[in-house]
Simulated assay, not measured.
Amino acid sequence: MRSTGEVLGLAENFPLAFYKSQEAAGSELPHAPAAWENKKVLISLSNKEGQKDQVLEIGKTLKNLGFTLVGTQGTADFYNANGIKCDVVNKIGAGRPDVVDLIMNKEVCLVINTPKAKRNYAEDRKTIRKACLKYKVSYITTIAGALAAVKGIEAVKNGNGGEGGVKSLQEYHSLIK
Rank of each mutant, 00 (worst) to 15 (best):
101 D>L: 00
46 S>Q: 10
95 G>V: 12
154 E>Y: 02
153 I>K: 04
89 V>F: 13
6 E>G: 11
165 G>W: 00
33 P>N: 08
39 K>F: 14
112 I>K: 03
20 K>E: 01
30 P>M: 01
3 S>H: 09
23 E>W: 08
41 V>Y: 08
119 R>V: 15
15 P>W: 09
110 L>E: 05
71 G>P: 12
66 G>N: 06
145 G>W: 04
78 F>V: 09
149 A>Y: 04
67 F>P: 00
99 V>H: 02
151 K>M: 05
132 C>I: 12
27 S>M: 00
92 I>L: 15
63 K>T: 15
31 H>T: 09
169 L>Q: 01
136 K>P: 09
86 C>V: 13
136 K>C: 11
161 G>N: 12
77 D>H: 14
82 N>K: 09
171 E>F: 07
107 E>C: 03
175 L>C: 01
111 V>W: 00
48 K>H: 08
21 S>Y: 04
107 E>A: 08
122 A>E: 09
155 A>N: 04
35 A>W: 07
113 N>H: 10
14 F>N: 00
162 G>R: 01
71 G>Y: 09
109 C>K: 01
6 E>C: 13
176 I>T: 02
108 V>C: 04
138 S>C: 14
87 D>A: 15
128 I>N: 07
100 V>G: 01
31 H>W: 01
116 K>E: 15
130 K>L: 12
33 P>H: 07
7 V>N: 09
40 K>D: 05
174 S>D: 13
45 L>G: 04
115 P>D: 08
49 E>L: 11
1 M>Q: 11
159 G>R: 09
170 Q>A: 12
6 E>P: 00
86 C>Q: 15
27 S>H: 09
99 V>S: 01
94 A>N: 11
84 I>N: 15
58 I>S: 05
21 S>V: 13
108 V>S: 03
175 L>E: 12
30 P>A: 04
171 E>V: 01
42 L>P: 12
96 R>M: 08
104 M>A: 13
52 K>A: 08
1 M>E: 12
125 R>W: 02
117 A>N: 14
84 I>T: 10
127 T>H: 10
109 C>Y: 05
85 K>Y: 15
154 E>V: 00
138 S>L: 05
22 Q>P: 04
107 E>S: 12
168 S>L: 02
114 T>P: 04
15 P>M: 10
141 T>R: 06
156 V>M: 13
1 M>I: 02
152 G>Y: 00
123 E>F: 02
162 G>W: 06
139 Y>M: 07
95 G>Q: 10
131 A>M: 10
60 K>S: 14
2 R>G: 10
92 I>A: 08
167 K>F: 04
167 K>G: 00
171 E>L: 03
13 N>W: 05
130 K>F: 11
78 F>A: 08
144 A>N: 13
30 P>V: 04
86 C>M: 14
38 N>A: 09
156 V>F: 06
130 K>T: 11
11 A>L: 01
25 A>P: 01
31 H>C: 06
110 L>N: 02
109 C>I: 08
28 E>I: 03
43 I>K: 12
83 G>R: 09
166 V>C: 03
39 K>H: 06
106 K>M: 04
84 I>A: 12
54 Q>C: 07
125 R>F: 12
149 A>I: 03
